[in-house]
Structures are given as structure tokens and as C-alpha cells.
Design a protein around this nucleic acid. Structure first.
Lengths: 131, 131
DNA sequence: GTTATACCCGACTAAAATAATCGTATTAAT
DNA sequence: ATTAATACGATTATTTTAGTCGGGTATAAC
């Protein structure tokens, strides 16, 4: 329980690697080979980050990806939710369609824990991990 | 991502309900019906908590479960790990058998986040949720 | 001592979430 | 043209989580 997804790990590893390389375009292949990440999966994740405007892509030979300035300022909460959808330790924090709801006797304390966890990720910037 | 399991939710709901009822034995059926929890699943969870000495069981008619004194002092970390095994936002915090390891470029910051999350659950007692 | 109610427990199945792969198209440098 | 790269939807596989089933044991009430 309480795990990050691989996709997020791969994304962070890739971002860090690209960041280390400055402005040059890095191919998905290079990263996948270096960190033993499944190539297609990483590619998809990178493509998602392009759509999110986190990184910039260049096609063709010598193409690849590079990090956009400003990415490092984004909070981990936003980063995680952009890539994986809403975060919450229980479903009722997300969709509120819980058959318990009315009777639930632990809602408030759970809610509090949830905001404590969010607070952690709010205070961390992507750059804290990737630079 | 970052979700608690249903089992943990059910366990906490049950504990709180039992605690509200003081010293009388409460059947799994009563709790399952009241909170719309699958009966067998709840039963299994309660049995697990008996083994952990969290609660006491009584068999036969008018039997059921009641909370043991002292349970409320246990930390959520311990509670969660007793019921669900080791907690960690990434696997390498748990079993260290990660093919990246050597090359991994985000280990330290991730580790730090991990201990922040553990810290939250260390500071919360089960009783903070169930009473 | 029979019955009804409840816990005990392991094996099993189902469902959902996550992870990974495949196929085809597009782009651009050489 | 060829090659090396991204783009992207569809599909499959794996793992984790959730839930069910069947047979057993204890005990209170009658």
C-alpha cells in the first residue's frame, strides 16, 4: 500500500537524466537502456510529458527530449496528479461515491491524514528530486 | 496511487465501532451489516487482529469481538504493517532487489519523501482514529 | 444432547489497477 | 531512399487487491 507507480519513478529518473544533460536532446532509447526501463513504456510516459508541456520533443535522427525551463518549480502533487490522476489515500477523498459515507465513522481522521500527505508533496518541487 | 487498502479501512471502521460499544462483544455480522462491508472479508480481517492481539474474540452465541486495552496506543505505522506488510512508496525501500539500484539517480530524494510519510503515520496512534 | 450462532482458517476466484508490448504512422537528418 | 527517432492507439500480461466458499470448532440456550 501507499506506493508510487513505476510510471512516476520512470518519469523522474528520465527527467533527472535529461536535466543532467542540459539542452541536448536525449532519446528514449538512451534512457531506457541506461536505467533498464522498458523502452515502449518510457516512451509513452515521455510523450505524455510532452503533452503536459513538461518537456520538448524533437523527431528524426538526433531527436529526443529535453526538459523545459520552469518544470522544476512544479509541485510534486501537481506532477503526480498530471501523470496519474487524483491522489488520495481513500476513494471518498476522490470521487465521493462510497456506499459507507453516511455511516462511515472514520472519515474525519482519515481526511486529516490525507491532507498531511498532500502537504508533503505540495512542499516538494520536481526540481528537488531531479536536480 | 498512494492508497490505503480496503482491509485497513474495514479494520479501522470495525475497531471504532467496537470501541464505541465498550466491553460488550460485537459480532462480525453486526459490523458488516451496519457499514455494508463484505462479511467474510471483515471476518478474516478481525481474525487477523485477534492473532495480533489487537482484539479479543468470544465464540458461541452472543460471542464476537472486543478491543483490547492498549490498542489505541499503537502507532498507525505498526498497525498498517502488521496488517499489510512493509510500507514504502517504492520497492527499493522494502526489498532492495531493484535492477536500477546502481544507476538509480533519484534514490536519495525518494528515500527522504518516504521517511516523511512514515513520520506522519508514526505520530498517529490508532486511537486517534478510533476514539 | 440438539440446535443455533458465532468464530476459525485455508483455498479459491474475481476484479481492478498497473505494467508492458505491438503495430502502424509520422518526422527529419544524412 | 534510408535510418533513427517520436506519436499514439490498441492490446495483452502481470500483479495486487478484493471478495467468496466450504468445512471445522466452540459455546450458550433450550
Amino acid at each position: 500500500m501507499l506506493k508510487l507507480t513505476r510510471k512516476l519513478e520512470y518519469a523522474l529518473i528520465a527527467l533527472r537524466h535529461m536535466q543532467d544533460k542540459g539542452d541536448t536532446f536525449i532519446s528514449a532509447k538512451e534512457i531506457a537502456d541506461m536505467y533498464l526501463i522498458p523502452r515502449e513504456l518510457l516512451a509513452k510516459t515521455l510523450q505524455q510529458m510532452v503533452k503536459l508541456n513538461y518537456i520538448k520533443a524533437a523527431q528524426g535522427p538526433h531527436g529526443g527530449y529535453r526538459v523545459r525551463k520552469g518544470l522544476t518549480e512544479i509541485s510534486m502533487t501537481q506532477f503526480m496528479e498530471d501523470l496519474e490522476g487524483p491522489m488520495g489515500i481513500v476513494d471518498c477523498n476522490i470521487n465521493a461515491e462510497c456506499i459507507q459515507l453516511e455511516n462511515c465513522n472514520i472519515r474525519l481522521p482519515i481526511k486529516k491524514i490525507n491532507s498531511n500527505i498532500r502537504a508533503i508533496f505540495n512542499e516538494i518541487r520536481v526540481g528537488d528530486i531531479t536536480s
